[in-house]
Design a protein around this nucleic acid. Structure first.
Lengths: 239, 239
DNA sequence: CTTGTTAAAATGTCAGACATTTAATAAGCT
DNA sequence: AGCTTATTAAATGTCTGACATTTTAACAAG
């Protein structure tokens, strides 16, 4: 794989990193492949070696590549990627070609973890957390009917789940909220979002909200599981 | 806080990063404080500005600090730290002054997550996973009586839990295994490790192993919870 | 065929100059 | 005095070129 297929004018090491990362996430290179050399990248995008090195340093930090002096830059396999790094989440969101194996892995994680998270949230949520959840739910409800507001609806969806993780009041769980964004954003492109589907999704979210408000951990767990069953259908994991 | 209290001769940007990170993790600076300037750090440790910048780039990537041109380097608060970054785990292991709030947060996470993880492992473990678990358990058993082998015992302990996370065969859960190392290593310094305690811990681990071997998810969940109750006592979280 | 040497290529490091951003300070006006 | 505007200093960001180190491959000697 060469650089020719990639858009140009990155403008800044961050953008260059995002560009290269997305190409990697989309599978433009196979694990074990040699990544282009610093100087080639610099020539192609017309940026200094500094910018290239900074961008590649980010990719190294997230486990996407591995660099050794003299040999060059190797592409690492998916199992080595730091999926929980916030940078990764940012790079994954909006990527349409995300590896289905990865989508399923993230979904499987959520399906096993999120009921527990919802249960913890029911025990620990403060008034502020409840307010955040209600605001997000209200946003979802408002943008549900409008077919032009799919992206906005997804944002509120992300906000709802993120608020759930935050409501656990646990530093570690809270960080995992980042992983939700790419997972939920993938829904925008894969599901048809007809009225019936959205209404069903909304109802299931409402049950989670109510269970958390009622401080009923068991009900929250069950309700979260129901939300994720809906998500599985929308992601095409189960029919 | 100045740099005077820190040991010198880091030798390489990685070591310098570890050094500074540990000072941050130990609370030598308060959130919102100004971190030393690049040139001062370089002078103090007798390293080039490049090394300093590389080290600080790592600290930035893990959310420990925040840098802006003109203003300087600010220390971020604990809630912003990327606790799931493998680098963080490496920096945290062996740190004796780890913030008690952080230790409790990590423990609370494990207490809520690890039963689920053990349950998943019971469903998905392969023969290879079982072998890893048995090898780790055997190592724990062998090093249990010997008071000189506390560090080795802890390594096997880490290996056991890491094997559990790996046995879920889920990319996301697997990454969280990194978080175990600092949590378990903290035990070495905090508990007395008398024979009775170790024997009890060993028995509880054995129950997890047997439940996973029997593919009994529910039993694995319960057994994992029991292991963590023992851990809570050893960490001094409950008496 | 093996071994040791050499050469090329790639990443890592350094040093210096310069650019940009920010904050504090001073000047000047109403 | 009070407010606005230049000026200056300090800090991080960037660029460039040269050099160091590591690895691989080619090649020659035994």
């Amino acid at each position: 794989m060469t650089l020719d297929a990639l858009p140009s004018h990155p403008g800044g090491a961050e953008n260059l990193a995002r560009l290269l990362a997305r190409a990697l996430l989309a599978g433009h290179w196979q694990p074990g492949d040699l990544f282009p050399k610093e100087l080639d990248i610099g020539r192609h995008f017309v940026v200094s070696r500094n910018q290239v090195r900074n961008a590649l340093a980010s990719l190294t930090a997230t486990g996407l590549i591995e660099r050794t002096a003299g040999r060059g830059t190797l592409v690492r396999e998916m199992g080595e990627w730091h999926l929980l790094d916030p940078l990764m989440s940012e790079w994954m969101t909006g990527l349409v070609n995300l590896d289905p194996q990865l989508v399923r892995a993230i979904y499987a994680f959520r399906f096993s973890a999120e009921p527990t998270v919802a249960g913890l949230a029911a025990q620990a949520a403060s008034a502020e957390d409840i307010a955040r959840l209600e605001a997000a739910f209200e946003g979802m409800r408002r943008s549900a009917g409008n077919p032009d507001a799919r992206a906005q609806h997804a944002e509120y969806d992300v906000a709802f789940h993120d608020a759930t993780y935050r409501a656990t009041h646990n530093l570690v769980w809270r960080q995992m909220g980042h992983l939700l964004r790419p997972s939920i954003m993938a829904l925008v492109h894969r599901s048809q979002h007809d009225i019936k589907t959205l209404d069903d999704s909304l109802t299931r979210h409402r049950h989670v909200l109510e269970a958390i408000k009622a401080c009923d951990a068991h009900a929250a767990e069950t309700a979260a599981r129901e939300v994720l069953r809906r998500t599985a259908i929308d992601l095409g994991i189960v029919s």
